[in-house]
Amino acid sequence: MQNNSKQYFRLRAFPNLEDHYEDFIKNDFVALGWPATGNLVGKSKEEVRAALDIEIYKFKNKRALGLAVGFFMRLLSMKKGDIIVVPHDNKTITFLEVTSTYDYDEAFISDHMAHQVKTKFLKKISVSDIPLVFKKSIDTMATLISLNKYAELIEDLLQEKDTKNSGFSTHTFVSDSQSKKIIMTISENVDRNDIEMFINTLHI
């Protein structure tokens, strides 16, 4: 049985749109960008929103700002023992264990990595060793998402249990008109937020 208080996340190692994967591993932390917000320790959701909604960070729209606020609220919620999955180059995924709560390290402001949680390296595996449905979930473009619904699968991967045949029931939907055709296959554990996130990654 899983510890219900344990959280699971996927974080992209691209603060300021730069690849900081090696920095994360070398320094035993993960980080978000937007350092001009200052220290967010103890800040509420509305205070985080206000800190992000400043002249230097002109988000394209309210949705983009809302997504950024969500990223920070997840970072602020991390605690010792939580698991972070970090994909890299579409080839590997690295599992890290959180060893501290959120900290704002001014030494990393210029590197856009001031917003941190400390981590411990657990494991690195090839994406070929994970179920396709899990790979698709961690491939979304959002910076920091919850993977709580994959808790059991992640624990199996960490304990080296075979997950290649981990099955999820799927449903296929077809919209076929004279001029347009759309086919979508969706696993049963996908929710509306997953679909919206996927649609936002399409360049159409």
Rank of each mutant, 00 (worst) to 15 (best):
E97Q: 12
N3W: 11
T201C: 12
V30S: 09
P35C: 10
R49D: 07
L158M: 14
M73S: 09
N16T: 06
K123R: 01
T163F: 02
V48E: 10
M197S: 15
A36M: 06
I93P: 01
T143L: 07
N200G: 12
S175T: 09
Q2L: 13
E47H: 04
I109R: 05
D89G: 03
S179P: 02
N148G: 07
L17G: 02
D139I: 08
M113S: 06
A107M: 10
D103Y: 00
A114M: 09
G33Y: 05
E155H: 08
N4M: 11
S44N: 00
A31Y: 09
I204N: 13
L202M: 15
I130Q: 06
M1I: 01
K135S: 13
E22Q: 13
T143I: 05
S187T: 15
T37L: 05
T172A: 12
N90T: 13
R49S: 15
K43Q: 01
F168N: 08
N61S: 14
T163I: 07
L158Q: 05
Y8E: 15
Y57M: 00
T99H: 10
L76R: 10
K62N: 04
S177G: 07
I83N: 08
D28V: 10
K149T: 13
Y102I: 02
G38F: 02
E97N: 12
A68K: 10
V98S: 02
A50Y: 09
I109L: 05
S166P: 00
S128E: 06
N61K: 12
M78A: 05
S5D: 14
D129S: 05
K91R: 05
I195Q: 09
A114R: 06
V127Q: 02
G38T: 00
N39L: 00
I125P: 08
K149Y: 09
Q159H: 07
I83P: 04
D82E: 01
K58P: 05
I84C: 07
H112V: 02
L144I: 04
L132T: 13
N189E: 14
K26E: 12
K180N: 08
L122T: 05
K91C: 08
V86I: 06
R10H: 08
L65P: 01
S110R: 11
F14I: 02
D19Q: 00
K26N: 01
L153E: 11
H20K: 12
R63Y: 13
I138P: 04
I186T: 02
F72D: 04
L76T: 14
G81A: 08
A64Y: 09
S100E: 04
A64S: 08
A142Y: 05
A107D: 11
D139T: 09
N16G: 02
F168P: 02
I125H: 06
K118L: 03
S146Y: 08
M184G: 03
P87K: 01
S137D: 03
V41Y: 14
T37D: 04
F59Y: 13
S169L: 14
T94V: 07
T101D: 13
E97H: 03
L158D: 14
K124M: 15
I130Y: 07
D129C: 02
L76E: 08
T94M: 09
A142E: 10
E196D: 13
N4L: 13
Y102P: 05
R49W: 09
F198Y: 10
E106P: 00
K149Q: 15
Q159K: 11
A50F: 12
T101E: 14
A64I: 04
V127S: 02
